[in-house]
Simulated scan of single mutants.
Amino acid sequence: MVKFQNMDKKMGQIEAFLKRYGMDSLDEAGEVCLSCGMDVPAIVREIQPICFDDACWAYTAGTAAALSSGTAEAREAALIMGEALQAFCVKGSVADERQVGTGHGRLAAMVLSEEVRCFAFLAGHESFAAAEGAIGIVQSADKVRKTPLKVILNGLGKDAARMISRMNGFTYVKTRFDYKTDELAILEEKSYSGGGRARIRCYGADDVREGVAVMERENVDVSISGNGTNMVRFTHLVAGAYKKRCLERNKTYFACASGGGIGRTLGPDETSAGPASYGLTDSMSRMYGDTTFAGSSSVPAHVAMMGFVGMGNNPMVGATVRLAVAVQESRDK
């Protein structure tokens, strides 16, 4: 029996989405996935075990639609999954207004595109959400890419970056920024594992200028910036400043603000932002973001509160990429 959070507020648009792809119900969508050997809820819960039921059903609908569409490419499958995720947004909610579901599809499609060579998590480095997302992307995206995707973490604090690297098996890149010449020097590179995780390069910057220099050195094409403690000291500022640099040299850069708008550390009361605002982080993310998510990077309940499904934004990126890849692999068999 199909049952999930806020079901009564979502079924109208969900059924309309399913009908566009020739299905009458979520039960039928589940059967389509199983007939192709895909246990979608199991895959979703493997990525984030504490996700809500609605996340499993949203990805079931998206996977079934991608399979039914006849698409043979993971990038196209990701865009269809974005449509499904958007159908699971509560009408009139923050997530609906921001088109968060569609944004997730666009972001995953970018990661799977050959034009994108480097993906950056602009991390707070005080949480492991970015690390979890980086691991998921590296494990999935390269299965269908011709050129391996470069993934970096770029956050505030060199000691924090070293610790994140050591605990996750990443490669720590120690840098020094010359403020007189605007030059970034690599002082040390240390890999804390010998496997695929070592491909993830983790930088710790002293300030915004050094963070932007890291983005330029790695020639970042797509980034996602978190909403942790350092969002007004580092993450949003680095993304916005780097966006300006890219525009000046006609480089394409897709910037996503993850978690922008929940205002949990700089809310309306603390910034005199007014009763209709979600705070300073909301305003900052809207200034540079090509797409802005809503809710926590890692906590399902925070995302659900914004009118979306109960799954952290970073794990959701991994789930969208992984299932889109699975659709292509199913077609290639």
Rank of each mutant, 00 (worst) to 15 (best):
V2Q: 07
Q5C: 00
I14L: 01
A16F: 04
K19C: 11
R20Y: 04
Y21D: 08
G22W: 04
G22H: 05
M23R: 12
L26N: 04
L26F: 05
V32E: 12
V32R: 07
C33V: 01
L34S: 05
G37K: 00
V44Q: 00
E46Q: 14
I47A: 02
P49G: 08
P49I: 12
P49S: 14
C51Y: 04
D54Y: 13
D54L: 03
T60E: 08
L67E: 10
G70H: 02
T71D: 07
A72V: 06
A74R: 08
R75S: 06
E76A: 10
A78V: 05
A78H: 10
L79M: 07
E83V: 01
Q86T: 13
A87F: 10
R98V: 07
R98L: 09
G103C: 08
A108Q: 04
A109S: 12
M110Q: 13
L112Q: 10
E115V: 06
V116D: 08
V116F: 07
F119Q: 12
A120D: 01
A120E: 05
F121W: 09
G124E: 01
S127Y: 07
E132I: 03
A134R: 05
I135S: 09
G136W: 13
I137F: 12
V138R: 12
A141V: 06
D142N: 01
K143W: 08
K146C: 11
K150P: 08
K150R: 09
K158L: 10
D159K: 01
A160G: 01
A160R: 01
I164P: 00
K174G: 00
R176I: 11
R176H: 13
D178L: 15
K180I: 05
L187Y: 03
E188K: 02
E188A: 06
E189F: 02
E189V: 00
S191P: 05
G195Y: 00
R197Y: 08
A198R: 03
R201D: 03
R201K: 09
C202I: 00
Y203S: 02
G204A: 07
A205M: 07
V208I: 10
V212K: 11
V214C: 00
I224A: 15
N227G: 04
G228W: 02
T229D: 11
R233Y: 11
V238M: 00
G240W: 06
Y242W: 02
L247T: 09
E248P: 05
R249P: 00
R249Y: 09
N250D: 14
T252D: 15
F254R: 04
G261H: 05
I262W: 10
G263A: 01
G263C: 13
R264G: 06
R264K: 14
L266Y: 14
E270W: 10
E270T: 12
T271L: 04
S272C: 13
A276C: 11
A276M: 10
S277L: 03
S283G: 11
G289H: 07
D290V: 00
T291K: 03
F293G: 09
S297A: 14
S298R: 09
V299H: 04
G307T: 10
G307W: 01
G310R: 02
G310M: 03
G312P: 00
N313A: 15
N314V: 05
M316S: 13
M316Y: 12
T320A: 15
T320V: 15
L323I: 01
Q328W: 08
Q328C: 03
E329L: 12
R331L: 04
